[in-house]
Amino acid sequence: MSETLLEVENLRTVFHTDKETIHAVDGVSFDVSEGETVGLVGESGSGKSVTARSVLGLVDDPGVIEEGSIRFRGDELVGGNWDQHRGDIAIVFQDPMNSLNPVYTVGNQIKEALRIHQGLRGSEATEKAVELLEDVGIPDAARRVSEYPHQFSGGMRQRAVIAIALACDPELLVCDEPTTALDVTIQAQILELLDDLQREEDLGVLFITHDMGVIEETADRVNVMYAGEFVESAPVDELFEEPRHPYTRGLLASIPGRNAEGDRLPTIEGEVPTSTSEPTSCRFAPRCDYAFGACEEVHPGRVRVGDVDTDHEVACLLYDDTFEETPPEGGVEAHGGESA
């Protein structure tokens, strides 16, 4: 059993604005072990990126980690202790044009990280930077190292961003929608690259995306996030075969190509609410086809479902024995295309 890198427990990140307090991340817990890929999936606004930023200690004022603990190799990070593990956790952002500074050459930016984390300078650093660019599959790296980001294509830029992340020699890589800004062929290449790197270096990866298809390919374990909470957590195969939460089912039903029947793609009506107070009901209830009376009154806790040895949890009253409604058999269809 490989060692646990990151342990996040009951994390609450809130943003205090003038009008209200927004609970962006509301009590999530997960672990990432060496060599493991943990997926975080959800719609825009569900709190995925804030979770990632919380893990790296990048939450800006007026946001604050109000509660919970983030431990890296057993060391508590919450409370401003990120500096002792800087570089151990690296991040790859969504838009590669935005995460590279256009006024410096790519090499310059890799060397910046090399200098901080490996103490390399001058020609030594340049050599290492070329080596890193080669590792991430950039051809003609020796020439490319002195080029500016605008001279790189989108896929190359993301490779360069990954090279910068690797320059820190990290143990945990947080990927915040790393392929969203890329087209599908490039996306496949980048995913393959991340997979290779993970196997070579035994990296732990926290992979954030809204794309169920990508999650199915990459993750070992998936957490489905909705309005700041995990509504379902399960190993990837289990989740795709037997989704329990109506939201997860809705997400899976809306993947093109998964549902052959029906000429329209099913959608989940409505959008993610902004959580401004302590939950007193199920946050998905207003959009849920299976909501019943208790859903409006009780905030569902997490219950264990499925076989005893599979680690499958879901936060839905349908699976809570104290409430009467029974979960639907087979599959939950979200709003069919016909009625839309």
Binding site: A90, S99, E112, I116, I164, A165, C168
Partner: peptide, 13 residues
Amino acid sequence: EREWIDAARSFGQ
């Protein structure tokens, strides 16, 4: 607000 600021912060600049 640009991400390269966060990138630099994330590797401890």
